[in-house]
């Protein structure tokens, strides 16, 4: 359970509240929930939610609609005019945006790795390898650092004469141009992102392990199951919901929280090889002054996120059922 004592299953006031709290049982309490309450009481809930509703509707939901709408209008000379799908055509003709989409493909390919690493580490910590208490705190700590800080530090470590190449040199390898080689830079940045965030997924896995029935694992071990068998047949099925949660949140993280790293470490380069949709949006809106084109890219990014989320949910639900 996450915080403090009250159970945190999510439900709203309309579900789960005992019904039939009639006049007979609780005449006075009825004042709060009954139909003849004074006007002030009936208005109170709306007053309490009003600020949140106004802020979320005005600064999140409305801009989403506005942005989709905006993506069908023109930039510059054609500002405000309806241009149909022109922006989307421009977008998919732009080699930079195509590179950004290609990099999204790379992220999808690397996603299982980014989930498996914290998953394996959490398993070992759960099985109490020596020092498991320490590992939990140490592994999580980079997750609280800003991508800007992480990027600034890794700029030093990944410099041509930095730590990474010095270590490689000791074993007779390298040097690698980590951030200057178009074939390497994107993988480098993703690697740094995984270094900085795997602790987040790790604590989520550990929270999932806390809900597992330990006696099941003990029983399997007594029956002579090996560790890989225990993982495959007891742990993975028991954690299917946690695994699904980690897959989705890790993918969202890869798609939407790499901006700081890209901004500090590569600026999209070399040769545009580290563009991601989020960085493309920022460049088009902020530097190229093409907000409508940027809005089209935003809409595509939103579509990608919807597809990824739904796909993973569907795939994991099916595999969960088979087990």
């Amino acid at each position: 359970m996450p915080i403090g004592s009250p159970p945190s299953s999510v439900r709203t006031a309309t579900v789960g509240r005992p019904e039939g709290r009639g006049d007979a049982q609780a005449p006075k309490a009825r004042k709060l929930r009954g139909s003849r309450r004074p006007l002030a009481d009936r208005l109170a809930p709306y007053v309490l939610v009003a600020p949140a509703v106004l802020i979320i509707a005005g600064l999140r939901l409305y801009p989403l609609a506005l942005g989709v709408n905006f993506s069908f209008t023109g930039d510059g000379d054609r500002n405000g005019q309806a241009v149909g799908f022109d922006n989307y055509a421009t977008l998919f003709d732009d080699p930079l945006f195509r590179q950004a989409l290609q990099n999204v493909g790379l992220l999808v390919l690397l996603l299982p790795v980014a989930v498996a690493i914290p998953g394996a580490l959490a398993t070992f910590i759960y099985l109490r390898v020596p020092g498991h208490r320490l590992y939990r705190s140490v592994y999580f700590f980079p997750a609280v650092l800003s991508p800007v800080i992480v990027g600034a530090i890794f700029n030093l470590l990944l410099a041509y004469d930095g730590t990474a190449n010095t270590v490689l040199g000791l074993v007779g390898l390298g040097p690698v141009d980590w951030l200057g080689d178009p074939d390497v830079a994107m993988v480098t940045v993703v690697g740094v992102h995984v270094w900085a965030t795997f602790g987040m997924a790790l604590v989520v896995f550990l929270a999932g392990f806390a809900t597992l029935d330990a006696s099941l694992i003990d029983a399997a071990r007594i029956d002579g199951a090996s560790l890989p068998q225990v993982i495959r047949h007891v742990i993975v099925p028991g954690l299917s919901r946690t695994i699904q949660f980690v897959f989705v949140t890790t993918m969202i993280g890869l798609l939407t929280s790499m901006f700081g790293l890209l901004y500090v470490m590569t600026g999209g380069g070399p040769e545009g090889s580290t563009y991601l949709p989020e960085y493309y949006i920022w460049v088009q809106a902020g530097q190229m002054n093409r907000p409508a084109l940027a809005s089209a890219a935003s809409t595509v990014l939103f579509g990608i996120m919807l597809v990824v989320g739904l796909l993973q949910a569907a795939v994991l639900r099916r595999s969960g059922r088979e087990d």
């Binding site: 801009p63 949006i281 809106a285 990014l301």
Partner: peptide
């Protein structure tokens, strides 16, 4: 509605918001 808003990344709304 609030849950739905949770899944709108800033990058998607940044242009109209600005």
């Amino acid at each position: 509605g609030c849950l739905a808003a949770l899944f709108i990344p800033f990058q998607v709304i940044m242009v109209p918001l600005a």
